[in-house]
Design a protein around this nucleic acid. Structure first.
Lengths: 138, 138
DNA sequence: CTGCATCCGCGAAGATACTG
DNA sequence: CAGTATCTTCGCGGATGCAG
């Protein structure tokens, strides 16, 4: 490797203006906050189901595809409740009855999830094709 | 539709019309597809960084916050490449040079990620408050 | 019915060393 | 510089049992 005087390391690709912003420089990109919350296996299903209305624990469990365990459902709704996306109402009856519903914050997230679903459905064929092509080349 | 003489067990919460749709009944909600792809720890950072332009491997690694290992970066970009979101260009030089950029498909995802980031930034205070309240009650 | 506690398997992610 | 291979660690998620 010849060491020229003006021969700097890189051609300097000149990064364009940032398309996606991160507010605080100290903090990471804001997307992580949402994704950490929705990225787990079940949260999105809970949000989707609750987007249609109030649900009880068992109703949620039955409505969610993929046989979610009680443990996982509990953990998931607890996290969502802690983040203020889900409201949990306990009726002191026998047997106990607990209702779950989206808060305003949760409902505002619904639009995003909807957008995500739409994008996914729209581009699913393209993704499938890309995968097949990639796998074939391999 | 009137119940009439029926005294059924449950008040029948009457699920409203589904807010979020899933196309094929056999398949799950489409959101999972995107989330499985973006839900991992690093993918979103790669997309965010590439949204601003072409990047080389090392550039990507340095730009991504949180010290991503070579292994993880490789795995991440490979997955994104396989799904047709990222294009990988290898220049047979010495030392080797590899450039990564978003495909059209990847760029179309950028809008969603942007929306996610905006939502996250906008509601971060609300979420933080909810968490504090929840933790305090505990 | 709703929820918590415990144990455990497995895959994701990290660290390190080595190759082209 | 870019990437692979190997080993280890860690936490999610599943299964089960128990309690209010």
């Amino acid at each position: 490797m010849s060491a020229g005087h003006t021969a700097v390391t890189t051609p300097v690709p000149q990064p364009d203006e940032p398309v996606i912003v991160c507010d605080t420089p100290q903090d990471e990109c804001g997307v992580r906050d949402v994704l950490d919350r929705l990225g787990d296996k079940w949260s999105v299903y809970v949000v989707v189901e609750l987007a249609s209305g109030i649900r009880r624990f068992k109703e949620l469990q039955r409505a969610i595809p993929g046989d979610i365990s009680q443990r996982m459902l509990t953990l998931t709704v607890r996290r969502l409740e802690r983040d203020g996306l889900v409201r949990r109402t306990v009726y002191p009856t026998v047997p106990p009855q607990v209702e779950y519903e989206l808060t305003e914050l949760g409902h505002s997230l619904t639009h995003l999830v909807k957008a995500l679903a739409d994008w996914s459905i729209a581009h699913r064929p393209a993704i499938a094709a890309a995968r097949e092509a990639w796998d074939a080349a391999r």
